[in-house]
């Protein structure tokens, strides 16, 4: 990335630091208010948004902080989703066990794929991560036991404990909200940790980092694995959210859209991924209400962001360094 896009900015003001958390806190009221006002649809919509934000946060970590432009992230979302399918198909009923397994399995896939792909750089990295995601896609298509191309319906909700299930819209919403908040908190702490600093150093000057004694390859692999595991979590939650999983989740345009949302929000910006997902999904949703031609305004927005706000939407809220 060019220096201009990636240059450091001043720490955010106290208000800017707490505002996102306050908004997340307010969201906790949504299922209550929503039930009163008949906004059930929007409770579901926001839940989906939060799930996508979890995946995007992981991608922002490797792309924005680590400089790894991966175009295969949807593949790990798919691995997470299909892990849930496999467990449910085998008779599992605990949400936590299924989601936990999804995190582990997708993390393992990411570690294996990262071990091969992280030897390459730039466009070659972009293309080889895409290639592996496509392989996962065709693997899913071939799993006729899980519906192949047609996908797999999850007919009974998973158990969350205390007699609650993912079928309880409000409870599931709170669970997703809590998980998302945990992920955001962890990501923003990791960004200012030793690991985060090392990762940004690798993004800015990989050779120098190696020459200063950093195990560059291993650091990248750990970040890539973590991001893959987060994508897997998102995939698992998405499976429960939709009660349905299909290979379409892993199509390359899904990976591209995720990448687009992260860049739109602001690469390597603490709330960039979250903001990008919120704006992109909300706009898509609203535009769909009014017109069947709802892609082109989004396309126009992307072009505008590239030319007018190269640091992304989150960059617009930052004070420039003197």
């Amino acid at each position: 990335m060019s220096d201009g896009v990636m240059s450091r900015t001043l720490p955010a003001s106290a208000a800017a630091r707490w505002l996102p958390w306050a908004l997340l806190g307010l969201l906790a009221l949504l299922p209550v208010v929503g039930a009163e006002m008949g906004l059930d649809y929007y409770v579901g919509f926001v839940r989906r948004m939060l799930i996508v934000m979890i995946a995007a946060t992981g991608l922002n970590f490797i792309l924005g902080y680590g400089g790894m432009a991966a175009l295969g992230h949807a593949g790990f979302i798919g691995v997470g989703a299909y892990t849930v399918v496999a467990l449910v198909d085998a008779g599992a009923s605990s949400a936590w066990a299924a989601w936990g397994a999804a995190v582990l399995v997708s993390g393992a896939f990411a570690a294996l794929i990262g071990a091969v792909t992280l030897r390459t750089r730039g466009v070659y990295f972009l293309m080889i991560t895409l290639a592996f995601a496509q392989m996962l896609y065709y693997l899913a298509v071939s799993l006729s036991a899980y519906g192949g191309d047609d996908g797999y319906g999850l007919y009974s909700p998973l158990e969350l404990g205390f007699g609650r299930t993912t079928g309880d819209a409000a409870v599931f919403f709170w669970v997703v909200l809590a998980l998302a908040a945990l992920v955001f908190a962890f990501a923003s702490r990791a960004a200012v940790s030793r690991f985060g600093h090392a990762l940004m150093g690798i993004r800015d000057n990989e050779t120098r980092m190696e020459a200063m004694g950093y195990p560059v390859y291993r650091l990248k692999l750990v970040a890539f694995t973590g991001a893959g595991a987060l994508a897997g979590l998102a995939g698992a939650l998405l499976a429960s959210h939709n009660n349905f999983v299909s290979p379409a989740t892993m199509h390359w345009t899904e990976s591209a859209t995720l990448l687009v949302m992260v860049v739109l929000g602001g690469l390597g910006r603490r709330w960039g991924a979250v903001l990008g997902v919120a704006v992109w999904l909300a706009l898509s949703e609203v535009l769909k209400l009014y017109t069947e031609y709802w892609h082109w305004p989004l396309g126009l927005m992307l072009i505008a962001v590239v030319f007018v706000a190269p640091r992304g939407l989150a960059g617009l809220f930052e004070r420039r360094k003197a």
Partner: peptide
């Protein structure tokens, strides 16, 4: 610009072209 900016902007062009 860097490759990522090119990918994003030309992805925008795809969205416009498909609708057109």
């Amino acid at each position: 610009r860097d490759h990522l900016a090119q990918v994003i902007a030309t992805f925008g062009v795809i969205l416009i072209a498909d609708d057109a």
